[in-house]
Design a protein around this nucleic acid. Sequence first.
DNA 1: ACAAGGATCCTCT
DNA 2: GAGGATCCTTGTT
Length: 217
Amino acid sequence: MTKLRPPLPRSFYSRCVLAVAEELVGCHLRRGRVVLRITEVEAYRWPGDTACHARHGRTARNAALWGAVGHAYVYLCYGLHQMLNVVVRGGEADAAAVLVRACEPVAGLTTIRRRRGNKQGPVLLTGPGKVGAALALDRAFDGHDLCATGGLTLEPGTPPKQVAVGPRIGIDYAEPEHCAYPWRFVDADSAWVSHRAASARPAMHEAHHEAHEDHEP
DNA sequence: ACAAGGATCCTCT
DNA sequence: GAGGATCCTTGTT
């Protein structure tokens, strides 16, 4: 079984969202017996990013983005998918968050499969809606404290050997300049990621020498 | 009240 | 790769 570790401290989330996003790759999400290792994330922040849900200001739906760091921002996408974000605030932004896009199973595979239609392999967890389903998230988790023991928590895990970066997925509504930001971070050695080909960038090959640099716009 | 638009997923081809 | 499913949130009459 997975060793129980204290959740990541609140201070982890009070930094630049790009640094937090990168370091969340490899961390563990725990809810009950289900433990997932994060393999793919995306960073969002406002101002300066028209892909961010905060772009139209504070609303009832996105209020958690302006709340305490280390809490979850969970919202319903396309009317049926529960998407898990982690609230971050690093001083450079009024509101920021990291979207968990994919994971690989660490524990609780039976439960995961049951919640995902008894499928098998990466299709279980390679997509933000799939992660939400595997964790059985619902609206009640919006604003949940991920630093507190119990419920849903974020813990240290196994860091990736190499991290690949690329543009974020599914944000065609944003300004082209913002669509191009390499704010998507994936474990380069994991098969449990969505859109592997779409993230193809020099960083994938150069990761051997240098994980990445220059991810500030 | 109403219309439009999604940070997606699944099932085809 | 393309298209439909599906329904809540938001902004506009």
